Structures are given as structure tokens and as C-alpha cells.
Simulated scan of single mutants.
Amino acid sequence: MCDSQFSDIHENAKLDVAGNTDNAKIVITIDTTGINSFSTGWISLQNDTTKTNILFNFFNVKSQTDFSGDIQWNVTNGATNAILAPRASVTVNSSAFNGNIVAQTVSNNNKSFQQSDSHYPDATVPSDSSTSTPKLISAPNVNFGSHKLNSATSLIGSWDGDFKVSGEKGQEIKINVSLAQNFKYANSKDTGVTWQLVKSDYSSGTLKTSSQDISTTPASITYNDDGTGDLIASWNHNRENKQYIFYDIQISKLNSVTEAGDYTATLKWELADSP
């Protein structure tokens, strides 16, 4: 990779890219700080090997933003290359262009101009991985309240805290939940309480419920990101409006608890489809 000022490329110039091996991928970043338009002039682009691919990246280094002006591309020979300018307008004035263009708009002033993926098969367009790859930001607690011994055999817990993920709007995110540690007595003996993930679904217009045991194996939550990434808020909205899907945690076999006390268990939350 190398950097260049826009003034380094001008009329009748010759740009040599030397010292590269076959199939090398070269990125030349052109700093467009302080300009609104760019033109190569009628220049010749020479590679020391015909198998070298060059990507020209137009970027405003000072503001750390993509160039959003006009680009006039007038290279007079057919070296394989690519132009990366996702916010710019690119005009190709040379019939010798041989590669790919990523731009806001592309204008072609030559009938013989052709743009084909086969010319630059490995040109990767950068993406914001923080949004394209789902991330688990915070996991909730579940509060079952205080109850007398043998007063109930089964309880639905209330969500306590935030449950948030980051991703792209409309993206389906799958999350696994499992029991990492059950309620235990003071002597570390397991209480025998069982755990389930309860799914309530109004998608068909009527309520349908199903349960997955999480005492020994993970259960799966499917969340379609509405752009907020706030699962609890989304589920509460669905519950109140009797639409779509929401989830609860249920504990059962409370009659197996024979000693009074404060009990704490640990749940494990993890994204199912992420590295």
C-alpha cells in the first residue's frame, strides 16, 4: 500500500509500479484533502508485471472520510486496476479502462469501455464490521422474586437489566441461552429446579407457546433487529400489543427446594452464528 497526493498525477505523466510479484494486490491511496474534483490527465499506467492488480483508493485523510467529489479517469493504457470511491462521481474518458469501479455514479464516455468482475476478482470493498457482524452488548438478569417454601411449583421470571445486541436493521440474530449453574444449597448441593425458555408467538394472529429446556442443553432465541438492538423493549412491545414473538424464562420443580434462603443461579448467553 502507498499514499499519493492528487498533484502527483498530472497531464502526460507516467506512473510506474515496480518491484511487485505476480498476482500482487497494490492499493494506492490518493489523499483528496482540500479538493472537490480530481483528474488523472492523459497518463500512462505501467506495471512491471501484467498480473499485478492496482486499486486506487480516493480518501480525504484530514477528515477521515471518503472523497465525495468528481473523478475524471483518463488513463491511456489497459493495465488492470480498480477505483474505490463509494461517495464520488467517476467519469471514464478512456477506452483502455480494464477493471472494477465502486462509486456513487459512473459515467462512460467510450463505447468500448467494459467493466467486469473477472478483471479484478479480489477487490474487497471495506465494510463496517461493527454493524455487519452481530455483537452481544449486554445480557439480562432474571428476577423470580421472593416466595415461601412450597407456595409455588413453577414461576415465570421478570427481565431485570438490559438485553442488547448490535447488528444491521432487519438482520436475524440467533442467541443461545443455557443454564451455567443452578440454584444450590449452602452445602453446594443442587436444588433440583429445572429451567425452560418459553417462546410466545402471535405471528399467526393467535398465541402459540413452546418451551425449550435449558437445564442441560442450550435453547435458541431468534431476534429480528428493528434497528435498536434492544431485545427486552422489543419483547415488551410485542407482549403488550399481542404481536410477533417474545421470550420468558420459567423455573419449575420448586417443591424440590427444602431449605429457606437466598438463591442465585447463572445463565449463559452467546451468539449462535458469530465467530
Rank of each mutant, 00 (worst) to 15 (best):
P140K: 03
F113L: 15
S112F: 07
S158R: 06
G145Q: 00
T153L: 11
Q104Y: 04
L155I: 10
S107H: 10
G157L: 01
S138D: 06
I137Y: 03
D122I: 05
N141M: 04
A103V: 00
T105K: 07
K148D: 15
G157P: 01
S154G: 04
Y120P: 00
S112K: 14
S151H: 11
S107P: 02
G157V: 00
N108P: 07
T133I: 12
T131L: 12
N143M: 03
L149H: 04
S130M: 06
T124Q: 08
I137Q: 07
T153S: 12
N150T: 15
I156T: 11
F144I: 00
F113R: 14
N143Y: 03
Q114E: 14
S154R: 09
D122K: 08
T133M: 11
S158L: 01
H119G: 10
F144V: 03
S138N: 07
I156R: 11
T153N: 15
K148V: 11
T105C: 06
S151E: 14
S158V: 01
S154C: 02
Q104S: 13
A123T: 10
S116L: 14
N150F: 15
K111G: 14
T124S: 06
A139L: 03
S127K: 06
T105Y: 05
K135I: 08
N143E: 04
G157S: 03
A152C: 08
V125I: 13
N150W: 14
L149R: 07
N110K: 13
S112R: 14
Q104P: 01
G145N: 01
L155M: 03
P121F: 10
V125S: 01
Y120G: 00
D117Q: 08
S132D: 12
S151C: 13
I156C: 02
N109I: 00
F113Y: 08
T133Q: 12
V106N: 14
P126V: 06
G157M: 03
I156F: 04
T105F: 02
Q104E: 07
S151K: 04
P134R: 09
S154I: 04
G145Y: 02
A152V: 14
N141R: 00
S138G: 02
T124L: 09
K111E: 13
D122A: 06
N141D: 10
G145E: 02
D128G: 10
S151V: 07
V125W: 00
A152E: 09
A139T: 11
I137C: 03
F144Q: 00
P126S: 03
K135W: 02
H147D: 05
N141Y: 05
T153D: 14
D128I: 10
S132F: 06
V102W: 02
S132P: 04
K111N: 14
A139H: 03
S158P: 01
P134D: 08
L136G: 05
D128A: 09
P126I: 13
S151Q: 12
S138E: 02
G145D: 00
S158C: 01
S138K: 07
G157E: 09
Q115F: 08
L136T: 11
N108I: 11
A152Q: 09
S151Y: 04
S112E: 13
S130I: 09
T153Q: 15
D117K: 12
P140I: 09
S112M: 13
G145W: 02
G145K: 02
D117W: 05
Q104F: 04
Q114S: 15
A152Y: 08
P126L: 06
L155G: 01
N143R: 01
N108K: 15
V102Y: 03
S151M: 13
S127A: 10
N109F: 06
Q114W: 15
